[in-house]
């Protein structure tokens, strides 16, 4: 597995986490919990952004693996 695909895998699982967190942040009743989940959403978004940028660089460096 190349670095790019490893990063992609991590990115995918983080996005999965984010989606589930989003579900919980909408269906939870307690406001404190909701705010914790929302904060978590922001953090994961930031991490996902950074990873996506890095992925672009990686794909530019190893174009032969693009799309894997």
């Amino acid at each position: 597995m190349t670095v790019a695909s490893q990063v992609k895998q991590t990115l995918a699982s983080l996005k999965g986490v984010q989606g589930t967190l989003r579900i919980y942040s909408t269906q939870t009743q307690d406001e404190e919990t909701v705010s914790v989940f929302q904060e978590a959403l922001e953090t994961t978004s930031a991490v996902i952004n950074d990873l996506e940028k890095r992925l672009q660089v990686l794909e530019y460096q190893e174009p032969q693996y693009k799309g894997n």
């Binding site: 490893q6 991590t10 699982s13 983080l14 999965g16 986490v17 589930t20 991490v47």
Partner: peptide, 14 residues
Amino acid sequence: EMIYANLEKAQASL
């Protein structure tokens, strides 16, 4: 629990 496990895995990968 799955979310937490996935977060843990992502953190370790990073």
